[in-house]
Design a protein around this nucleic acid. Structure first.
Lengths: 113, 113
DNA sequence: CAGTATCCTAGGGGATACTG
DNA sequence: CAGTATCCCCTAGGATACTG
């Protein structure tokens, strides 16, 4: 077991890091995340969010109203650690795209989506 | 497409980050990596190394001798970016283990393994 | 030592439909 | 809106054997 195993276990999965990337910018509702990540299926989104919640990285807040409202956000305590991981990843990604071509669609999140 | 997609594409796969973790410490031979990561199968190790090579992150040096000697190492140009990604991941991992229990077996690599 | 070559399976993840 | 519930596929990855 090496040090990267643990994070790998919590952040593995096809959509977790992408979800975290968006949630680090601001809390999002289910539907927002689906629009931000059009390729993800509802089933997968839910599953990955639940696993992130189980890992204590993401918190789920339910507002008791109709229509239902659920907001996901990064747990405060883990924000710093998560940023330390995700941001370098982003910078590397942006840098790579700059050198090798490709397009980054969303870097900053509109306040409402 | 969001900024983490690109790194995810290059570092995805079950063993790539672990391999990078060790190669960042020093160049390693095939057999060393196998001993460092006992669960990995030769097939997988080779595959992941080839993909890392194709991504330009790892370089493969063949010494023409018998018995064969092949050394893998991190490409200089990419070392900084890779460290920026892997180290925070490690710290987070070590921190988590400290708080939640578990064991980290290898943090620093012996000069010969 | 550093790999190919096969074969095979588990489960991650896709698609579609339905519900409080 | 924010989810379950099913069904199903496919390929990433495991196991074993062989080679220059």
């Amino acid at each position: 077991m090496c040090p990267v195993d643990v994070p790998l276990h919590h952040l593995g999965g096809k959509w977790k890091l992408i979800v975290c990337f968006y949630l680090l910018q601001r809390p999002c509702r289910n539907g927002e995340l689906r629009r931000l990540i059009p390729q993800v299926r509802q089933k997968m989104l839910t599953q990955q969010l639940r696993e992130l919640e189980a890992s204590g990285l993401v918190q789920r807040e339910v507002f008791d109203q109709v229509p239902p409202k659920v907001v996901y956000s990064i747990v405060d305590k883990e924000r710093a650690a998560l940023e330390a991981v995700v941001y370098p990843l982003c910078e590397w990604g942006i840098d790579r795209v700059g050198r090798h071509g490709g397009r980054i669609l969303t870097t900053t999140l509109p306040t409402d989506f």
